[in-house]
Amino acid sequence: MPIGVPQVLYEFSDDDYDDDYDDDYDAEEEDEDDEWVDVYTRLYQEGVLFLADEIDSELSNEIISAMLYLNMVDPTQDQYVFINSPGGSILYGMGIYDTMEFVSADADVHTICFGVARSMASLLLVGGVENKRMAFPHAWHVERTGQPLWVIERDIERDHFMSAREAKGYGIVDEIVDEFPTLEFDEFDEI
């Protein structure tokens, strides 16, 4: 049974926010000024983007437009691209890659692999800012990084699967994380 897209509180009214945890919070007494949005919208507003499908024109346009919009609103806000993708179109993937390069002029683009980053998705994973590319220990990667050209050519001849540890040694990711990384957000800032 699908649960739908969860709604999260986007903005507190002045009466709701208190530095101390309120043990007497009652969801029934929500202020009419509280604004609720779907969880994806809230995450996008904080620079968290998901590339979790095959890279095609639709997904590429969604990622590119979100990155450009966030960069337009605040060019210094870091962006976090979570990747779980079998790869896909090189044409559309290069559009995402170029956008990552563009927005990283004033802010960092972090790339985090959860699951797989194969083919074009592995290029996007390695396209994150150096020392801000991560993978969970169970993540697998295919193809590409800063190896000598002959190594890359050999490895992309066929899909070359790697564990997270192998991907770190190869240079695709900079860090292997065992828990979800703490993301620095300005809590409840209005965009």
Results as ranks from 00 to 15, higher is better:
100 M>V: 09
6 P>Y: 12
32 E>G: 02
47 G>N: 06
121 A>R: 09
87 G>S: 10
34 D>M: 08
105 A>Q: 06
39 V>N: 02
163 S>G: 08
118 R>K: 14
181 P>A: 11
48 V>T: 02
43 L>I: 01
22 D>S: 05
63 I>Y: 10
62 E>W: 04
93 G>C: 03
59 L>K: 02
56 D>C: 02
130 E>C: 04
41 T>R: 13
118 R>F: 11
85 S>W: 07
160 H>Y: 12
63 I>F: 00
20 D>W: 03
30 E>M: 02
1 M>G: 07
187 E>R: 09
73 V>A: 01
158 R>G: 07
62 E>C: 08
34 D>K: 01
32 E>H: 06
171 G>D: 11
91 L>D: 07
94 M>R: 04
13 S>Q: 05
49 L>I: 07
6 P>D: 02
107 A>I: 08
128 G>C: 11
131 N>V: 13
97 Y>W: 05
11 E>M: 14
151 V>A: 15
149 L>A: 14
22 D>V: 01
103 V>E: 03
165 R>A: 11
15 D>H: 12
100 M>P: 02
137 P>T: 08
116 V>F: 00
88 G>K: 05
53 D>Y: 12
130 E>I: 11
159 D>V: 09
102 F>Q: 08
114 F>N: 05
40 Y>Q: 14
64 I>F: 00
40 Y>D: 09
166 E>F: 04
135 A>F: 09
123 L>E: 01
191 I>R: 12
56 D>A: 12
75 P>M: 02
57 S>R: 05
65 S>C: 03
52 A>D: 11
11 E>N: 13
55 I>F: 06
36 W>E: 15
